[in-house]
Simulated scan of single mutants.
Amino acid sequence: MRPLFLTVVCFLFLSTTPALAATCGNGPNGFEAWKQDFIANSKRYGLKQRTVNSALQNVKYNSKVIRLDRNQKSFKLSFQQFYAKRVNNAMIRRGQKLGKTYARLFSRIEKKYGVPAPVILAIWGLETNYGGYLGNMPVLQSLATLAYDCRRSKFFTNELVNALKIVQRRDMTPGEMRGAWAGEIGQTQFLASSYMKYAVDYDRDGRRDLIRSVPDVLASTANYLQKKGWRRGQPWGPGTANYRVIREWNRASVYVQTISVMADKIAN
């Protein structure tokens, strides 16, 4: 029997969103029924039921995603430990080289959004080693699993809905949507909700492609920071307004500090 406090938590999640299913869950049992109920209620989210059914029909509960969700140890490290684990001199040099390779693109982006190249390069490098590893887990399967799971059901239900809206807009097919275990997409690892709000079609090919289009990736990252309050021409170190904007990218203090320091090193 599910403990009473979990039943209460699930009720609170579901009372603030359109009906999905009778309950969330803490294991594979009940996932398929939850999924079918989500599909049946998809119109309440502005989704086409046929699109959702096609996108989710082969999606299964993924126990690996739950294990990874429960085992996030990196953010418990000190800054020195985290930085040493995630950044090295080769990454800094590559960031500087890419800054030169895409100098004209970065110049146009900074002119439009106000965000300088070193900050975008630091995020790009830290998230996926400049597009070198985007993750290979099916985004819709990860998000459906986490939406069903009781721990953060409301949050990930919203991400699942937004991921399906990306499919519905034809920016990406379900098969193309592969990423990190928590459903992050593309070379700077946008959550689906951020993708819907901040991704831009900078290369004007009719799609917001954060997987293959470097112009879309870099401009979308700058657009995100601008919309969060980035102050043009201002520093980004600790105690500044722009440092607080970087915190909007990732709330973990070690991550924010790493982006700031990495950007300084790339700039120098």
Rank of each mutant, 00 (worst) to 15 (best):
M1A: 06
R2V: 15
L6P: 01
V9C: 12
F11R: 15
F11P: 00
L12I: 05
T17I: 15
A22C: 00
G25W: 02
P28K: 14
W34Y: 07
W34L: 08
K35A: 09
F38E: 09
F38D: 06
I39N: 11
A40K: 12
S42T: 02
Y45C: 04
L47C: 11
R50M: 01
A55W: 07
V65T: 14
Q72Y: 04
K73R: 11
F75S: 08
L77N: 13
S78A: 03
S78E: 03
S78D: 02
Q81V: 02
Q81E: 15
F82Q: 12
A84N: 14
A84D: 15
K85N: 13
K85H: 04
V87L: 12
I92H: 04
R94M: 03
Q96L: 02
L98W: 02
G99K: 09
T101W: 02
Y102Q: 13
R104Q: 14
F106R: 12
E110H: 05
G114H: 06
G114D: 11
G114Q: 10
V115K: 14
P116Q: 07
A117R: 12
V119Y: 07
I120L: 15
I123N: 08
W124P: 10
G125D: 06
L126P: 01
E127I: 02
N129S: 14
Y130C: 08
G131T: 10
G131C: 09
G132F: 01
Y133H: 15
G135P: 02
L140Q: 09
L140S: 08
L140C: 08
A147P: 03
K154P: 02
N158P: 00
N162W: 00
K165S: 13
I166W: 05
R169A: 15
M172S: 13
M172Y: 15
G175M: 09
W181E: 11
G183I: 00
L191W: 12
S194R: 12
Y195P: 04
M196G: 06
K197V: 03
A199M: 05
Y202T: 10
G206V: 10
R207E: 03
R208I: 08
I211S: 06
R212D: 08
D216E: 01
A219G: 12
S220M: 04
A222L: 15
G229N: 11
W236C: 01
N242H: 04
I246A: 07
E248K: 10
N250V: 02
V254G: 07
T258D: 03
I259Y: 04
S260C: 13
S260V: 05
V261A: 14
M262S: 11
A263Q: 10
I266C: 06
